[in-house]
């Protein structure tokens, strides 16, 4: 099971290959299992998308930090404040999040124009639903709606290049939930999640310290552990985090100390 560039390069190879067409899927599949794709290949677009001349998520896109943590009665969604273009930081107070309705929050990273465009499209549609029906969509319903939109986009002429975390509380049961979505429209409900390089640093910390019964305070402590590690290990400054939490009282801003200095290892 893979969601990623491994398969993206699989797509690529399936079409680039000199073999007769009927032989390709197997060929490609074998390649997928035997060879790990080279980093360069990760930056290549699948052939059916190549004519759009848009690079695959580059290194700088993976440097963007998205974090999500659920607990007993809350979901924390956090995103890095740096807006990057290549190696340059264009903005240090960027908020890569949109509130969709009273009880759900969407954080995004990826291709510069796509992210806001897509997030606001989703935001507008969830708000339209709330206006029409006088009821909010549940996080699960939104997640599946978003997946549908991304999946359609994936096989269109110009796909959105957006990775998402969708956090929320079910408006009826108040059960917290978090959904991990990537630009390939893979959807997974998870107790905690991250996107980009942050995954490699944070998931192992959360594996060790997270449990589903934690309260908000503990959740923020966990978040601090994660950001500390990111500051310690990541080669660039991501300019701190915008932290919000969905609780039974709606979406609340969390004060988060971005200036804390972390000693490197």
């Amino acid at each position: 099971m893979c969601t990623d560039h491994g398969c993206a390069s699989f797509i690529d190879k399936a079409y680039r290959c000199d073999q007769p067409e009927w032989a390709m899927p197997h060929q490609a599949e074998a390649r997928l299992r035997v060879d790990e794709p080279h980093e360069d290949q990760l930056l290549e677009r699948p052939t059916h998308l190549q004519h759009t001349k848009q690079p695959f998520p580059g290194y700088h896109q993976k440097m963007e930090v998205l974090l999500g943590i659920t607990g007993k009665d809350f979901t924390i969604v956090a995103s890095s404040k740096a807006a990057m273009r290549g190696a340059t930081i264009l903005k240090a107070q960027d908020v890569k999040q949109r509130q969709l309705n009273k009880s759900s929050l969407l954080a995004y990273s990826g291709e510069a124009g796509d992210t806001v465009q897509f997030a606001e499209y989703i935001q507008a549609n969830t708000q339209l639903y709330s206006m029409r029906n006088e009821a909010d969509l549940s996080p699960s319903a939104i997640a599946h709606f978003v997946r549908g939109e991304l999946a359609t986009s994936l096989r269109s002429r110009k796909p959105y290049n957006v990775n998402l975390l969708l956090g929320g509380l079910d408006p009826i049961t108040l059960k917290p939930s978090l959904y991990w979505l990537d630009y390939l429209a893979s959807l997974a409900p998870v107790p905690y999640a991250a996107h980009g390089y942050a995954q490699y640093y944070c998931l192992s910390i959360l594996d060790k310290h997270h449990n589903p019964d934690i309260d908000l305070e503990t959740g923020i402590k966990l978040l601090n552990m994660c950001t500390d590690e990111l500051k310690r290990r990541m080669p660039i400054d991501f300019k701190g985090m915008t932290v919000k939490a969905v609780t039974k009282d709606g979406v609340i801003d969390i004060d988060f100390d971005d200036d804390k200095v972390v000693k490197s290892a």
């Binding site: 099971m1 893979c2 969601t3 990623d4 560039h5 491994g6 790990e36 991990w180 990537d182 893979s186 997974a188 409900p189 998870v190 999640a193 995954q199 490699y200 998931l203």
Partner: peptide, 18 residues
């Protein structure tokens, strides 16, 4: 089926039925 969802070596979810 197994339940893993992963990005290459990174496991994203252990609750992904197939």
């Amino acid at each position: 089926c197994d339940l893993r969802l992963g990005l290459q070596a990174l496991t994203v979810s252990n609750n992904f039925p197939k």
